[in-house]
Amino acid sequence: MIRTGLIGYGLGGCAFHAPLIDAVPELALTAIVTSRADAVRARYPQTKVVSEAAALFVDPQIELVVVSTPNDTHFPLAHAALEAGKHVVIDKPFANSVAEAEALVTLAEAQGTVLSVFHNRRWDSDFLTVRKLLDDRAVGEVALYEARWDRFRPALRDSWHEIAGPGGGVLIDLGPHLIDQALALFGPPQTLTADIIAQRAGSRVDDYFEITLHYGRMRAVLSSAAIVPAPRARFAVHGTRGSFVKYGLDPQEAQLRAGARADAPGLGVEEATQHGALIGGDGASQIVPSETGDYRRFYAGIAHAIADRAPPPVSPEDALAVLRIVELARQSAAEGRSLPFQ
């Protein structure tokens, strides 16, 4: 059993990390850093509650530290955990800058510890379906890949996500999910072009972005907007043999937020009404049942990496590439031009 300490029991810690860690047999949810002691004890009575992250760093029993806190704290907490010789998982984003992320990679290599980033959306039901269709060449040669994550939130919220600074805004919030998925499918682009703006009145952070990744003649368009009452397709993949179009989000987040166990039957299984459609060049359409999503696979991979020195499920290099895209996108939008990816 790999004794695991979790820093943070907000949405990320409560709905994602704690139930997933608890559902992987090789991991033990040993301690949680939070002020919400009653909430933890009600669900995880065997888990110790501590008030300071430093308690995890000095505890010789804790092998793995998971950082699920506001973005601005990812770097200092992860750095301290690595210095203490712990394996570390960081919720996305990896850090607020490429420079910070590179410092963490260097430290993890020096310490000989596992470092990974929670890009859980690689195990979304819809993304797994897209990946399978592309592996099967169901749409032929891809010409246009579109991935969008829209919301209808015209009112500003009292949240750290909407505080001006490098850790705020939708690009650093949802952008890493979309970017990581595109890189997992197609690898690094040659160039990119981005448009980033705050559309809501009074917003101090970006709430709209569209990034186009250039792959020769193929384009991957990644976008998110906060004022979309009727969401656009979550995925739309167009190729020489047809298109795949899919609406709606993977159900795991909603299920976990509602209190479902991560190993419950039916978790990650989409309703048939949410399945996407494959449309051929002749206009014929067929429904494609979604693959079953399973975020547990991330933490099972982390356990394997720690115990058996296997590659982590998300490598630090992959997470660094995501942040490089984020930084280049900001530069592209500011300068109004396409930029090479290096």
Rank of each mutant, 00 (worst) to 15 (best):
G13M: 12
G13D: 11
C14Y: 14
A15S: 15
A18N: 05
A23T: 00
A23Y: 02
L27W: 02
L29C: 04
T30R: 12
I32S: 00
V33Y: 04
S35A: 09
S35T: 09
A37I: 04
A42R: 15
R43P: 10
R43E: 10
P45T: 09
P45S: 13
Q46A: 15
V49I: 11
V49L: 06
V50I: 13
S51F: 07
E52P: 00
E52H: 12
A53F: 05
A53K: 07
A55S: 13
L56M: 05
L56I: 02
F57A: 00
V58S: 14
D59A: 10
P60Y: 06
Q61E: 15
I62C: 08
E63H: 04
V66G: 07
T69Q: 05
P70Y: 08
N71A: 14
T73W: 08
P76Y: 10
A78W: 13
A81G: 00
A84H: 06
A84L: 05
K86S: 03
H87V: 11
V89Y: 15
I90A: 12
D91W: 13
K92R: 15
K92C: 14
P93V: 07
A95K: 02
N96A: 09
N96S: 09
S97V: 02
S97M: 04
V98S: 05
A103H: 06
